[in-house]
């Protein structure tokens, strides 16, 4: 019986358990217009990748705890000294010194506005969001970058004040655990699993 692939790190090494790939039969591709001659074969493949968040793990872990972390360059010799980066960057892009991790949840609650947005009717395979997807880019006071995310409730417009919501229950431990709703949205309007 197959079992989902699971991984943990022990003694600084990955320990794998379960199935990480499944074998399926190749199937012929034939040309219906030319006497069903062979054209090629299908190449089915189902495999699971393993991926580390490295120095960003703290950011993804914090989302399901209701915290939005960012980094700040505090290198006095750097031109970007004082810049806050969201997306969270492990290193300052200018001086490459390690950024100081800061909690910007309150800052986001007070100052997040939609810089731009897009309502997208389509998605690719393996999409986990409901369509249409309301992509938004968010500006914050004193933050030099513009975070890309998605709006969970309502219709976006530029300049719209939004506040972060977090997936506390059944988190995915991905960027999907962070979303946004219009300022003033009531807790009861949030989809299951999300909270302020």
């Amino acid at each position: 019986m197959s079992q989902y692939g699971q991984v943990q790190v022990k003694d600084n090494r990955y320990k794998f358990r379960g199935d990480f790939h499944r074998l399926e039969q190749h199937m012929p591709i034939r040309n219906a217009d030319e006497g069903w001659k062979l054209v090629g074969v299908t190449k089915p493949r189902d495999m699971t990748y393993v991926h580390t968040y490295g120095g960003e793990a703290i950011f993804f872990e914090s989302l399901s705890q209701g915290k939005l972390l960012a980094t700040k360059c505090e290198n006095p010799a750097c031109e970007a000294n004082g810049s806050i980066f969201q997306p969270f960057r492990i290193y300052c892009p200018d001086c490459l010194s390690k950024g100081t991790v800061i909690d910007m949840t309150d800052l986001a609650k007070k100052s997040a506005t939609v810089h731009t947005f897009m309502v997208c009717e389509r998605s690719g395979a393996f999409n986990m969001l409901d369509k249409p997807i309301r992509f938004i880019n968010i500006e914050f006071e004193n933050v030099c970058t513009i975070l890309f995310s998605y709006l969970l409730v309502g219709e976006p417009h530029m300049g719209m004040r939004v506040v972060p919501v977090f997936k506390y229950h059944n988190p995915t431990y991905t960027i999907l655990d962070l979303s946004w709703v219009p300022a003033g949205t009531k807790a009861e309007s949030l989809p299951e699993g999300f909270g302020f």
Binding site: F117, M118, R122, G124, F126, N127, I133, F135, F148, Y150
Partner: peptide, 11 residues
């Protein structure tokens, strides 16, 4: 987020 590159440009 959507696994759709068009969306990342579309904003």
């Amino acid at each position: 987020m959507g696994q759709i590159y068009t969306g990342y440009y579309a904003v």
